[in-house]
Structure formats: C-alpha cells, structure tokens
Amino acid sequence: MPTTITVTVNGTTRTNEVDERLLLVQYLREVQNLTGTHIGCDTSNCGACTVHLNGKAVKSCTVFAVQADGGTVKTVEGLASNGVMHPMQAAFKEKHGLQCGFCTPGMIMTSIELLERNPNPSEAEIRRGIRGNLCRCTGYHNIVEAVKFAAAGTGGKK
C-alpha cells in the first residue's frame, strides 16, 4: 500500500509515493538516483550507508524511508558546494584516506558529525567515533590521519 512522503534531500524537497517497507538507503539510491550512499552489509554493521537524517548520522539501511517523511537528509552528494569539496572530502583526498573507496561516503558522513560534536578529537576519540564504519582496505590509518587533518584545518572550530 504505497504512502506519499515528502523529504528534503540535499536541499531539494521532493514528494514521492513509496512502499512503506522501502529502506531509506533504497529510497536515496533507487528513487532519488543518489548512488553515492553505498550498501555494504545491509545488516546495520558496516556504516557504508551512513547519511545525516534530521542532522544526525544514521545507517540508512536501518530506517524506513517513511520515517524520514517531513524530514531532511544529507548525503555525500550534498557536501560539495559550487564544485568545492567539503573540508572532510578534501582531507580524505589529501591524506589518501581510501583505497577502493567503498566505505568512504559513510566514513565522511560519520567523521563530519564527529567533528561537529568534538572539533578537536584525540586519535583515540577519532577511532572510537568511527567504530560503526568498517573499512576492508586501509587498515584505518590514513582515515584517522584524514580526520585529524580536517580537524586541524578547521582550527578546532565547527
């Protein structure tokens, strides 16, 4: 029984008919054609599907799209403005915080929230902050370096 939902994704508000059991990640990828958000495990563990829902990082395979009705979503596609990368994206590029790149959109969305809450994290706090995001390639070293670099770039401010 389809339901109508209105969601603002990366600043654009759209109304769509969706099946109630459509997951938010499926809505973003299949309905909005925003395939930057990845599906890694589909079991709430890997964090590849992390987006911001109403300002909070969430694994979008663990919420139904109907739960986002009336809300706002930000995905990795919404980070750059006028072709200029978000400082966290630039930091991942600068520090080579990726290899295959599959985990990267989720890592970036989680790391952005981490710095919003704690602009000057220690290495331990960074590792703890991204523990819901798994990376099969990097061994995390350069991801942690990237988050440190982004934090330094903001001068410890939001």
Partner: peptide
C-alpha cells in the same frame, strides 16, 4: 553502546 550512528537513534 554500539557506535555513534546507533546511539543517535
């Protein structure tokens, strides 16, 4: 509990 994303919800 869990990780930052789970603790948000």
């Amino acid at each position: 509990v869990a990780d930052a994303q789970v603790r948000n919800f």
